[in-house]
Protein backbone atom coordinates (compact mmCIF):
# COMPACT_ATOMS: atom_id res chain seq x y z
CA UNK A 1 0.00 0.00 0.00
CA UNK A 2 2.79 2.41 0.87
CA UNK A 3 4.68 1.71 -2.29
CA UNK A 4 1.62 2.18 -4.41
CA UNK A 5 0.75 5.48 -2.85
CA UNK A 6 4.30 6.68 -3.36
CA UNK A 7 4.11 5.75 -7.00
CA UNK A 8 0.81 7.58 -7.38
CA UNK A 9 2.29 10.61 -5.72
CA UNK A 10 5.18 10.69 -8.15
CA UNK A 11 2.95 10.23 -11.16
CA UNK A 12 0.72 13.07 -10.04
CA UNK A 13 3.65 15.33 -9.28
CA UNK A 14 5.29 14.51 -12.58
CA UNK A 15 2.12 15.26 -14.52
CA UNK A 16 1.66 18.61 -12.85
CA UNK A 17 5.33 19.50 -13.13
CA UNK A 18 5.44 18.79 -16.82
CA UNK A 19 2.09 20.25 -17.71
CA UNK A 20 1.98 23.28 -15.47
CA UNK A 21 5.39 23.76 -13.98
CA UNK A 22 7.46 23.60 -17.16
CA UNK A 23 5.63 26.37 -19.00
CA UNK A 24 5.81 28.56 -15.92
CA UNK A 25 9.54 28.10 -15.68
CA UNK A 26 9.96 28.77 -19.37
CA UNK A 27 8.16 32.11 -19.26
CA UNK A 28 10.58 33.48 -16.73
CA UNK A 29 13.58 31.88 -18.31
CA UNK A 30 12.87 33.40 -21.69
CA UNK A 31 12.02 36.77 -20.25
CA UNK A 32 14.95 37.14 -17.92
CA UNK A 33 17.76 35.34 -19.70
CA UNK A 34 18.98 38.42 -21.55
CA UNK A 35 18.93 40.29 -18.25
CA UNK A 36 16.79 42.72 -16.31
CA UNK A 37 17.73 45.60 -18.54
CA UNK A 38 16.21 43.96 -21.52
CA UNK A 39 13.00 43.29 -19.63
CA UNK A 40 12.75 46.92 -18.59
CA UNK A 41 13.43 48.00 -22.15
CA UNK A 42 10.70 45.76 -23.46
CA UNK A 43 8.13 46.92 -21.00
CA UNK A 44 8.81 50.56 -21.64
CA UNK A 45 8.82 50.30 -25.42
CA UNK A 46 6.05 52.52 -26.75
CA UNK A 47 3.66 49.82 -27.87
CA UNK A 48 3.96 47.77 -24.70
CA UNK A 49 3.88 50.79 -22.46
CA UNK A 50 0.69 52.11 -24.02
CA UNK A 51 -0.77 48.60 -23.89
CA UNK A 52 -0.05 48.49 -20.17
CA UNK A 53 -1.62 51.91 -19.76
CA UNK A 54 -4.74 50.86 -21.63
CA UNK A 55 -5.04 47.64 -19.63
CA UNK A 56 -4.84 49.57 -16.38
CA UNK A 57 -7.45 52.10 -17.50
CA UNK A 58 -9.83 49.37 -18.59
CA UNK A 59 -9.33 47.53 -15.31
CA UNK A 60 -9.87 50.71 -13.31
CA UNK A 61 -13.21 51.28 -15.02
CA UNK A 62 -14.48 47.73 -15.29
CA UNK A 63 -13.53 46.39 -11.87
CA UNK A 64 -15.67 48.76 -9.76
CA UNK A 65 -18.58 48.40 -12.17
CA UNK A 66 -18.55 44.64 -11.99
CA UNK A 67 -18.04 44.52 -8.25
CA UNK A 68 -20.94 46.85 -7.55
CA UNK A 69 -23.06 44.93 -9.99
CA UNK A 70 -22.02 41.60 -8.49
CA UNK A 71 -22.75 42.67 -4.91
CA UNK A 72 -26.09 44.16 -5.86
CA UNK A 73 -27.13 41.19 -7.96
CA UNK A 74 -26.13 38.69 -5.27
CA UNK A 75 -28.15 40.52 -2.62
CA UNK A 76 -31.11 40.66 -4.95
CA UNK A 77 -30.90 36.99 -5.83
CA UNK A 78 -30.57 35.74 -2.27
CA UNK A 79 -32.51 38.25 -0.19
CA UNK A 80 -35.30 39.22 -2.58
CA UNK A 81 -36.02 36.15 -4.66
CA UNK A 82 -38.41 36.63 -7.54
CA UNK A 83 -38.82 35.50 -11.11
CA UNK A 84 -36.67 38.38 -12.18
CA UNK A 85 -33.87 37.55 -9.79
CA UNK A 86 -33.90 33.93 -10.86
CA UNK A 87 -33.58 34.99 -14.45
CA UNK A 88 -30.75 37.28 -13.45
CA UNK A 89 -29.02 34.42 -11.67
CA UNK A 90 -29.09 32.25 -14.79
CA UNK A 91 -28.06 35.01 -17.16
CA UNK A 92 -25.12 36.09 -15.05
CA UNK A 93 -23.53 32.68 -15.33
CA UNK A 94 -23.74 32.68 -19.13
CA UNK A 95 -20.22 34.06 -19.81
CA UNK A 96 -18.71 31.18 -17.92
CA UNK A 97 -19.69 28.64 -20.49
CA UNK A 98 -19.11 30.62 -23.68
CA UNK A 99 -15.95 30.94 -25.68
CA UNK A 100 -14.50 34.46 -25.41
CA UNK A 101 -14.39 34.63 -29.18
CA UNK A 102 -18.14 34.22 -29.29
CA UNK A 103 -18.59 36.87 -26.62
CA UNK A 104 -16.45 39.24 -28.64
CA UNK A 105 -18.36 38.45 -31.80
CA UNK A 106 -21.72 38.98 -30.13
CA UNK A 107 -20.60 42.34 -28.80
CA UNK A 108 -19.33 43.36 -32.20
CA UNK A 109 -22.57 42.40 -33.86
CA UNK A 110 -24.55 44.35 -31.32
CA UNK A 111 -22.50 47.49 -31.09
CA UNK A 112 -20.50 47.96 -34.28
CA UNK A 113 -21.34 51.17 -36.10
CA UNK A 114 -23.45 49.32 -38.60
CA UNK A 115 -25.07 47.14 -35.99
CA UNK A 116 -28.49 47.47 -34.42
CA UNK A 117 -27.45 49.52 -31.43
CA UNK A 118 -24.20 50.76 -32.79
CA UNK A 119 -25.99 52.85 -35.35
CA UNK A 120 -27.99 54.66 -32.71
CA UNK A 121 -24.94 55.22 -30.56
CA UNK A 122 -22.91 56.39 -33.53
CA UNK A 123 -25.42 59.15 -34.02
CA UNK A 124 -24.55 60.31 -30.53
CA UNK A 125 -20.91 60.34 -31.54
CA UNK A 126 -20.02 57.28 -29.47
CA UNK A 127 -17.88 54.57 -30.92
CA UNK A 128 -17.94 51.35 -29.01
CA UNK A 129 -16.33 48.72 -31.14
CA UNK A 130 -12.71 49.20 -32.16
CA UNK A 131 -12.37 51.65 -29.33
CA UNK A 132 -11.85 51.49 -25.59
CA UNK A 133 -15.53 51.38 -24.54
CA UNK A 134 -15.82 48.13 -26.44
CA UNK A 135 -12.89 46.74 -24.52
CA UNK A 136 -14.58 47.75 -21.28
CA UNK A 137 -17.77 45.98 -22.35
CA UNK A 138 -15.87 42.85 -23.32
CA UNK A 139 -13.95 42.80 -20.06
CA UNK A 140 -17.14 43.33 -18.12
CA UNK A 141 -18.85 40.51 -19.98
CA UNK A 142 -16.21 37.88 -19.39
CA UNK A 143 -15.75 38.66 -15.72
CA UNK A 144 -19.40 39.30 -14.89
CA UNK A 145 -20.16 36.13 -12.91
CA UNK A 146 -17.04 36.06 -10.80
CA UNK A 147 -18.19 38.18 -7.87
CA UNK A 148 -21.69 36.79 -7.51
CA UNK A 149 -20.48 33.19 -7.73
CA UNK A 150 -18.51 33.80 -4.57
CA UNK A 151 -21.13 35.85 -2.78
CA UNK A 152 -24.36 34.00 -3.47
CA UNK A 153 -23.42 30.74 -1.70
CA UNK A 154 -22.06 32.67 1.25
CA UNK A 155 -25.13 34.86 1.58
CA UNK A 156 -27.30 31.78 1.39
CA UNK A 157 -25.27 30.05 4.07
CA UNK A 158 -25.17 32.83 6.63
CA UNK A 159 -28.82 33.75 6.32
CA UNK A 160 -30.23 37.05 7.48
CA UNK A 161 -30.47 36.51 11.24
CA UNK A 162 -27.60 38.95 11.78
CA UNK A 163 -29.52 41.65 9.93
CA UNK A 164 -32.65 40.90 11.92
CA UNK A 165 -30.71 41.13 15.16
CA UNK A 166 -29.28 44.47 14.15
CA UNK A 167 -32.82 45.68 13.50
CA UNK A 168 -33.91 44.65 16.99
CA UNK A 169 -30.96 46.62 18.34
CA UNK A 170 -32.36 49.74 16.77
CA UNK A 171 -30.40 50.05 13.52
CA UNK A 172 -32.02 51.56 10.45
CA UNK A 173 -31.87 49.67 7.12
CA UNK A 174 -29.02 51.74 5.69
CA UNK A 175 -26.94 51.26 8.80
CA UNK A 176 -27.65 47.55 8.81
CA UNK A 177 -26.53 47.33 5.20
CA UNK A 178 -23.20 49.01 5.76
CA UNK A 179 -22.28 47.72 9.19
CA UNK A 180 -23.57 44.18 8.93
CA UNK A 181 -24.50 42.99 5.44
CA UNK A 182 -21.50 44.27 3.58
CA UNK A 183 -19.06 43.47 6.32
CA UNK A 184 -20.24 39.91 6.62
CA UNK A 185 -19.60 39.21 2.94
CA UNK A 186 -16.54 41.41 2.63
CA UNK A 187 -14.15 38.51 2.17
CA UNK A 188 -16.23 36.87 -0.52
CA UNK A 189 -16.56 40.18 -2.32
CA UNK A 190 -12.82 40.80 -2.11
CA UNK A 191 -12.11 37.30 -3.34
CA UNK A 192 -14.47 37.77 -6.24
CA UNK A 193 -13.00 41.18 -6.99
CA UNK A 194 -9.51 39.71 -7.16
CA UNK A 195 -10.66 37.01 -9.56
CA UNK A 196 -12.39 39.68 -11.61
CA UNK A 197 -9.26 41.79 -11.81
CA UNK A 198 -7.18 38.81 -12.89
CA UNK A 199 -9.69 37.96 -15.57
CA UNK A 200 -9.90 41.50 -16.90
CA UNK A 201 -6.15 41.83 -17.19
CA UNK A 202 -5.77 38.43 -18.78
CA UNK A 203 -8.58 38.42 -21.31
CA UNK A 204 -7.53 37.86 -24.91
CA UNK A 205 -10.08 36.41 -27.35
CA UNK A 206 -13.00 38.71 -26.64
CA UNK A 207 -10.87 41.82 -26.57
CA UNK A 208 -9.09 40.76 -29.75
CA UNK A 209 -12.28 40.92 -31.74
CA UNK A 210 -13.79 43.95 -30.12
CA UNK A 211 -10.75 46.18 -30.17
CA UNK A 212 -9.55 45.81 -33.71
CA UNK A 213 -6.07 45.16 -32.36
CA UNK A 214 -4.66 48.54 -33.34
CA UNK A 215 -1.16 48.97 -31.98
CA UNK A 216 -0.66 51.91 -29.62
CA UNK A 217 -4.36 52.59 -29.68
CA UNK A 218 -6.58 49.70 -28.79
CA UNK A 219 -4.19 46.99 -27.75
CA UNK A 220 -4.30 45.73 -24.23
CA UNK A 221 -1.25 44.02 -22.80
CA UNK A 222 -2.44 40.58 -23.84
CA UNK A 223 -2.93 41.73 -27.41
CA UNK A 224 0.46 43.40 -27.38
CA UNK A 225 2.16 40.24 -26.20
CA UNK A 226 0.48 38.23 -28.93
CA UNK A 227 1.34 40.66 -31.70
CA UNK A 228 4.95 40.94 -30.53
CA UNK A 229 5.27 37.20 -30.54
CA UNK A 230 3.74 36.88 -33.99
CA UNK A 231 6.05 39.54 -35.35
CA UNK A 232 9.11 37.79 -33.94
CA UNK A 233 9.71 40.39 -31.27
CA UNK A 234 9.84 37.33 -29.07
CA UNK A 235 11.85 38.93 -26.30
CA UNK A 236 9.40 41.74 -25.89
CA UNK A 237 6.51 39.35 -25.95
CA UNK A 238 7.98 37.24 -23.19
CA UNK A 239 8.74 40.26 -21.07
CA UNK A 240 5.09 41.18 -21.09
CA UNK A 241 4.16 37.56 -20.52
CA UNK A 242 6.43 37.36 -17.49
CA UNK A 243 4.80 40.47 -16.07
CA UNK A 244 1.36 38.90 -16.42
CA UNK A 245 2.62 35.62 -15.01
CA UNK A 246 3.93 37.42 -11.95
CA UNK A 247 0.59 39.14 -11.48
CA UNK A 248 -1.16 35.78 -11.74
CA UNK A 249 1.11 34.24 -9.14
CA UNK A 250 0.52 37.22 -6.89
CA UNK A 251 -3.21 36.80 -7.32
CA UNK A 252 -2.98 33.10 -6.47
CA UNK A 253 -1.03 33.84 -3.30
CA UNK A 254 -3.49 36.50 -2.17
CA UNK A 255 -6.43 34.21 -2.86
CA UNK A 256 -5.04 31.21 -1.04
CA UNK A 257 -4.19 33.33 1.99
CA UNK A 258 -7.72 34.71 1.94
CA UNK A 259 -9.19 31.20 1.73
CA UNK A 260 -7.19 30.11 4.76
CA UNK A 261 -8.28 33.03 6.86
CA UNK A 262 -11.88 32.59 5.87
CA UNK A 263 -11.93 28.96 6.85
CA UNK A 264 -10.79 29.87 10.34
CA UNK A 265 -13.53 32.40 10.82
CA UNK A 266 -16.43 30.09 10.27
CA UNK A 267 -15.84 27.16 12.57
CA UNK A 268 -17.06 27.13 16.12
CA UNK A 269 -15.04 25.58 18.92
CA UNK A 270 -17.66 23.55 20.65
Amino acid sequence: MKRRSLALRFVALFYVAVLVGAPLVLVFQRAFSPGLDSVWHSLTASDTASAIRLTLVVAAITLPLNVIFGVGASLLIVRHPSKFSRLLDTLIDVPLAISPIIIGLALELAYASNGVFGRALAHLGWQIIFSWPGIVLASAAVSLPLVSREMVPLLREIGDSQEQTAATLGAKPARIFFTITLRSVAWAAAYGATLTLARIIGEYGAVLIVSGNITNKTQTLTLDIASNFENFATQQGFAGAALLAMISIGVLIVLSLAKQRERKNYEYHD
Binding site: P23, L24, R30, G202, Y204, I225, L244, S248
Partner: peptide, 29 residues
Protein backbone atom coordinates in the same frame (compact mmCIF):
# COMPACT_ATOMS: atom_id res chain seq x y z
CA UNK B 1 4.69 15.59 1.88
CA UNK B 2 6.80 18.70 1.68
CA UNK B 3 5.57 21.06 -0.99
CA UNK B 4 2.02 19.75 -0.92
CA UNK B 5 0.54 23.19 -0.42
CA UNK B 6 2.69 24.42 -3.27
CA UNK B 7 1.19 21.71 -5.44
CA UNK B 8 -2.26 22.70 -4.28
CA UNK B 9 -1.72 26.31 -5.28
CA UNK B 10 -0.05 25.54 -8.58
CA UNK B 11 -3.12 23.60 -9.70
CA UNK B 12 -4.99 26.88 -9.96
CA UNK B 13 -2.32 28.48 -12.12
CA UNK B 14 -3.85 27.56 -15.50
CA UNK B 15 -7.04 29.13 -14.25
CA UNK B 16 -5.41 32.38 -13.22
CA UNK B 17 -2.87 32.68 -16.01
CA UNK B 18 -3.84 34.71 -19.06
CA UNK B 19 -4.42 32.46 -22.05
CA UNK B 20 -1.89 34.24 -24.30
CA UNK B 21 0.86 33.62 -21.81
CA UNK B 22 0.02 29.95 -21.82
CA UNK B 23 -0.26 30.05 -25.58
CA UNK B 24 3.10 31.52 -26.41
CA UNK B 25 4.82 29.52 -23.72
CA UNK B 26 3.43 26.19 -24.82
CA UNK B 27 4.34 26.74 -28.44
CA UNK B 28 7.85 27.72 -27.42
CA UNK B 29 8.19 24.69 -25.18
Amino acid sequence: FIGKSLLNSIIDLPFALPTVVAGITLVTL
